[in-house]
Amino acid sequence: MCTYVVEKTPIAGCGSGAEGWFDLKEANVSYDHPFNAPYEHALNIDFTNEAEGPGARVAVELSADSARALVAAILEALERGEEAERREMAG
């Protein structure tokens, strides 16, 4: 099944691709056929800079459970990291 389910968001940062680091401009989050992961559908994230062409892409293909765990880990790391920054700023 092709779900055509994709969510796009602009992002800032950099990614390391086949030819080294490049500026990231978009994250494309899809739930559709993966190219390589052994699932019929996967949560795929393409970190891209579409203006630089198809090769400017850092890709992951995750199981749904892994994707949820990743979201939780990202949020947890952000919360702890920002809390550490606040403590540091407060002196």
């Binding site: 795929n44 198809p54 090769g55």
Partner: peptide, 15 residues
């Protein structure tokens, strides 16, 4: 959409 590795091109279309 451009040329490169087939998976990168297909990802662009998927996105």
């Amino acid at each position: 959409v451009g040329h490169g590795a087939p998976q990168d091109v297909a990802a662009m279309v998927r996105n």
